[in-house]
Design a protein around this nucleic acid. Structure first.
Lengths: 126, 126
DNA sequence: GCCGAAATGATAACGAGTTATCAATATCAG
DNA sequence: CTGATATTGATAACTCGTTATCATTTCGGC
């Protein structure tokens, strides 16, 4: 008997499937509590780590912030970090031309673009 | 008597002036020990925080890494994080066109581009 | 249904980075 | 030079995210 299908793990998985944006462990915990109100912190961590190991989720690292997680297999994209509510959103597209910035002699293997500002909700609320 | 000019603070300031790239507190500590060998961790933190307050240094946040600090007032630029030695380097220029990525209704106030790969030293060493 | 194993949840513990404490030292105005 | 005080350095303590512990509960093959 390897892995069991518990309501907690299903809840965590469902949270990410319907989120549409990267979530912190805390955000996922909060959302999952709406399905399984007694779910604990450790279980959310365990479920997320399992989903990352399975290749279902990938971590999204944000400067000076705890890791977020989002569905694996999304097209190349970047992120927007709202300075109002702190949420991180996906943004489509990529400025490209990264190779031009790279100093001579340096090997470029990847890049990350982070936009900062206020999301739709926070912009209209202010 | 407001602030005193101690050899420790001068050493920390000098380290950043001659670094040419963002340094972690640990890197600054190590370099500063070459001038003032007995300098302690707390003093380096105090000196850096003071220099940030004075507007002499600005923090550079790197995903999943402790903060780096570099001279304030540099031209708009981005950073390269070497996966070999872990050092962060400045890179000139900017891909631009950030506004195009921004979802409708979102207010864009800033952006950060992080390149990943191997620096000149690490690329030629491998 | 039964029962062994996997999973849960409350909590303690951990690790890394940073800050506070405090006696000893160094700076600098007078 | 001298004294008031800002600064230092060693270390304890703190924060915050994460993981380990372990008794209890739940899953699911039989």
């Amino acid at each position: 008997m390897a892995q069991r299908k518990t309501s907690q793990r299903q809840a965590v998985q469902a949270v990410f499937e319907s989120a549409g944006r990267p979530l912190t462990v805390a955000e996922a915990h909060e959302s999952a509590q709406q399905s399984v109100e007694s779910i604990g912190t450790a279980t959310v961590y365990r479920a997320i780590n399992a989903l990352v190991d399975e290749g279902f989720l990938v971590p999204v690292q944000v400067p000076g912030e705890p890791d977020r997680y989002e569905l694996a297999g999304l097209a190349h994209h970047h992120h927007f970090h709202c300075t109002g509510c702190g949420k991180v959103f996906d943004v489509e597209g990529c400025p490209g031309a990264m190779k031009n910035l790279c100093p001579p002699g340096f090997e470029l293997t990847g890049h990350e673009v982070m936009l900062y500002g206020r999301c739709g909700e926070c912009a209209s609320a202010a």
